[in-house]
């Protein structure tokens, strides 16, 4: 059972990590916990199903289209909801984020209804649910392998964008000193938009994966996933991208093991317990920088 839970946990953890990087990157550049990020994840699942059922497109094109749409939604969210509040106290933006989360959730309910829907299984290759390989007495399905593969690929791409490109370096510069970044001629708003686009497209992939993995989508699915990914970002150290990746994986494994060995009823509780423990014992997270400020 241990191997099986570990594999399940790893799959889940990769998904949390994909969502968590969106929280952490946005926090890095504008010190805002974007509570509506979970809703982008949810919208991705619905948009994907819509693209499949309405346009009959193949799944890989749907994934790319959904990433693009969610990137756009993320940017619009920033422009209309957060940008006007850039000079306001942080609390104003935080409350707006919660407001946007509720707004998007209800918008989805109006458009797609509040009842859970299954994913369009016919759009997926049938072998996804079959066993790809067995390790000891644990079996890994093709789907789990795909989730693992795509998530890893996206993480590598993200890592390269942040560390090797001009705009990625500008993102890091901006998160370290906004005034100084502006003085370098960096268009601060454009880089912030780019950050939202990047985080939202990662979250979009996670949304589609979850909908496929659990074969269900509903307008409030972003809430729980969002809170857990947020916990993962806090665990890794908010503002740190590698931290969010590690935090997501650790949380996924902890959750799967807890569900396997204690009770699956405590599944969600474990994420919160981890978050509370981190806040008490190591508030800066695994890779977070301590918040000591030199005066």
């Amino acid at each position: 059972m241990f191997e099986q839970q570990l594999i399940n946990g790893l799959t889940l953890g990769m998904i949390y990590a994909l969502i968590a990087v969106g929280y952490t990157m946005v926090y890095g550049v504008i010190q805002l916990i974007n509570f509506a990020h979970g809703e982008i994840f949810m919208l991705a699942a619905f948009l994907a199903v819509t693209f499949i059922t309405v346009f009959g497109l193949p799944i890989y094109i749907v994934i790319i289209m959904t990433m693009g749409c969610c990137a756009l939604i993320g940017v619009l969210l920033d422009i209309f909801a957060y940008r006007p509040l850039r000079q306001s106290p942080r609390l104003a933006a935080l409350i707006t984020a919660i407001g946007m989360s509720i707004f998007l959730q209800n918008l989805a309910m109006i458009i797609w209804g509040s009842r859970p829907k299954p994913f369009v299984q016919s759009a997926l290759p049938p072998f996804l649910r079959t066993t790809a390989l067995t390790v000891g007495d644990a079996s890994i399905s093709w789907l789990q392998l795909f989730i693992f593969g795509i998530a890893s690929l996206l993480m590598i791409i993200l890592f390269l964008i942040i560390n090797k490109t001009r705009v990625g370096t500008a993102m890091r510069a901006l998160s370290q000193n906004r005034t100084s970044a502006a003085l370098m001629g960096i268009n601060v708003n454009r880089v912030i938009s780019f950050t939202f686009a990047l985080g939202s497209s990662m979250g979009a992939v996670a949304g589609i994966m979850v909908a496929i993995y659990y074969n269900t989508l509903y307008p409030t699915m972003g809430y729980v996933a969002g809170v857990k990914a947020f916990a993962a970002a806090v665990l890794g150290g908010i503002g740190s991208v590698p931290g969010a990746m590690i935090g997501g994986i650790v949380l996924g494994i902890a959750e799967a093991l807890g569900a396997g060995y204690i009770s699956s009823l405590y599944r969600d509780g474990i994420a919160y317990a981890v978050m509370i423990a981190v806040i008490i014992f190591r508030p800066s997270g695994i890779l977070g920088k301590s918040t000591l400020e030199k005066v």
């Binding site: 001009r166 370096t169 510069a173 370290q176 370098m184």
Partner: peptide, 13 residues
Amino acid sequence: IFPRLTVYENLLM
């Protein structure tokens, strides 16, 4: 200066 960028990256910015 950007404390967590390298000297070289600072120059590039």
